[in-house]
C-alpha cells in the first residue's frame, strides 16, 4: 500500500495525544495528581492539541472533504465511523472532566472520577477503532492480523507515557517514575508483539494468483495488465520499496522505536540524567513514524495479484 503522509502523521500524532491524555487522567485519578492545576491544564491542552492535529490531518487525505460530516452516520457497521464518533464525543467529556477538576481545585471527587474514567474509556475506544479500521480489511493479510489492533493501542499508550514523563520533567524538573516504569513495561511488551507480528506476516499465506484467477491446477502468470499507464489501482496498491530497503528500515525502526528509548530512559533514571528523556521522545517519534511507514509499505493488497504478483 502506498504510504500517505497525512495518514502516517494522523496515526502517530493522535496516538501520542490520546496516550498522553490517558496517562494524565490515570495519574490524576490514582494519585490525585502529580501536577498542580496549571500544569494539569497545560498537559491537557497539549494532549488535546496533538489529538486534534492528528484528526485534522486525517481529513487531508479525503478527496471530497465537504461530505466528511456524514462519516458519523454508520456507527453500527463501519470502524471508521466509530472512530469518528468516539473522537468527537471525547471532546465534551474530556472538557467536562477538565472543568470539574478545575472547579474542585484538583480534588478527585466522585464526579471527577466518573468523568475521568469515561474519558479514558473513550480515548481507548478511539485508539482501538483506528486499529480496527486496518485490521478489518480482509484483502490485506498484513493488516488483517490479530496483532494489529493491540499494537496500535500499545503504541499510543507507550508514546503517551513517554510524552507524559517528559512533560513532567519539563514542568516540574523531574521525571514521573511510576509512568516511566509503566512506559518501560509497555514498550517491552510492544516490542515482543511487533516481533511476533513480523514473524506472522513473514510466512507466505493467503490468496495467490491461482485463487485470484481460479486456475488452481495450473501455473499462472500475468501477461498483460490491460493498460499502458498507471491506473488508480496501481497508484493506490502497487508500492514496491525493495526488500533490502524494507529490511534496513525494519532495523532502524527497532533501534529508534524500541532499543534507543528503553536504554535512554533506563540511563535517565540510573545515571540521573533526566534530559535524556527528550532524546528518548525524539527517537520514539521518528521510530514510530518509520513503523507506520513500514506498516503501509509492507502491506500487499490482493489486487496486486492482477498486476503481476504471484502471491501476497
Amino acid at each position: 500500500m502506498k504510504p500517505a503522509f497525512s495518514v502516517l502523521f494522523f496515526t502517530v500524532t493522535s496516538g501520542i495525544g490520546y496516550g498522553l491524555l490517558i496517562w494524565l487522567v490515570l495519574t490524576h485519578l490514582m494519585t490525585s495528581g502529580d501536577f498542580g492545576i496549571t500544569h494539569f491544564m497545560i498537559v491537557g491542552f497539549i494532549g488535546l492539541t496533538l489529538a486534534t492535529l492528528g484528526l485534522l490531518s486525517s481529513t487531508l487525505h479525503l478527496a471530497n472533504p465537504k461530505n466528511a460530516w456524514r462519516a458519523f452516520s454508520r456507527f453500527r457497521t463501519s470502524w471508521l465511523s466509530r472512530e469518528g464518533v468516539f473522537a468527537l464525543v471525547f471532546y465534551p467529556v474530556f472538557l467536562a472532566y477538565a472543568l470539574s477538576v478545575y472547579l474542585n481545585n484538583g480534588d478527585a471527587t466522585i464526579i471527577v472520577k466518573a468523568l475521568g474514567i469515561v474519558s479514558i474509556s473513550i480515548a481507548l475506544a478511539t485508539l482501538i477503532c483506528t486499529g480496527m479500521i486496518y485490521a478489518s480489511l480482509k484483502p490485506i493479510r498484513q493488516w488483517h492480523n490479530p496483532l494489529v489492533t493491540p499494537l496500535y493501542l500499545s503504541f499510543g499508550l507507550v508514546s503517551g507515557a513517554l510524552a507524559y514523563s517528559m512533560l513532567h520533567l519539563a514542568l516540574t524538573g523531574s521525571l514521573s517514575w511510576p509512568v516511566s516504569q509503566a512506559f518501560l513495561v509497555l514498550i517491552v511488551i510492544s516490542f515482543i508483539a511487533k516481533m511476533l507480528y513480523f514473524n506472522s506476516i513473514g510466512k507466505p499465506d493467503g490468496s495467490t494468483i491461482s485463487t485470484a484467477t481460479g486456475f488452481s491446477q495450473a501455473q499462472v502468470r500475468l501477461l498483460d495488465a490491460g493498460h499502458n499507464a498507471d491506473t488508480f489501482l496501481t497508484k493506490e496498491f502497487v508500492f514496491d520499496a525493495g526488500a533490502i530497503k524494507l529490511l534496513r528500515l525494519r532495523w532502524l525502526m527497532v533501534v529508534l522505536a524500541f532499543i534507543a528509548p528503553i536504554l535512554l530512559m533506563l540511563a535517565a533514571h540510573k545515571l540521573n540524567i533526566a534530559p535524556l528523556a527528550y532524546l528518548a521522545m525524539a527517537c520514539l517519534c521518528v521510530g514510530l513514524f518509520i513503523e507506520r511507514w513500514l506498516f503501509f509499505a509492507e502491506a500487499r493488497h490482493v489486487v496486486r495479484l492482477y498486476h503481476g504478483d504471484q502471491q501476497t
Binding site: 487525505h61 478527496a63 493488497h301
Partner: peptide, 25 residues
C-alpha cells in the same frame, strides 16, 4: 454522500472501485 476516503477500495479484493480524481468520489 461519498467523501472520497478510499476505504471501500481498500476493502475490495477485486479492484472494482476507482476514485474519480476530478470529482473526488
Amino acid at each position: 454522500k461519498c467523501m472520497g476516503c478510499n476505504l471501500c477500495s481498500w476493502a475490495c479484493p477485486y479492484g472494482a472501485r476507482e476514485l474519480d480524481e476530478e470529482q473526488g468520489v
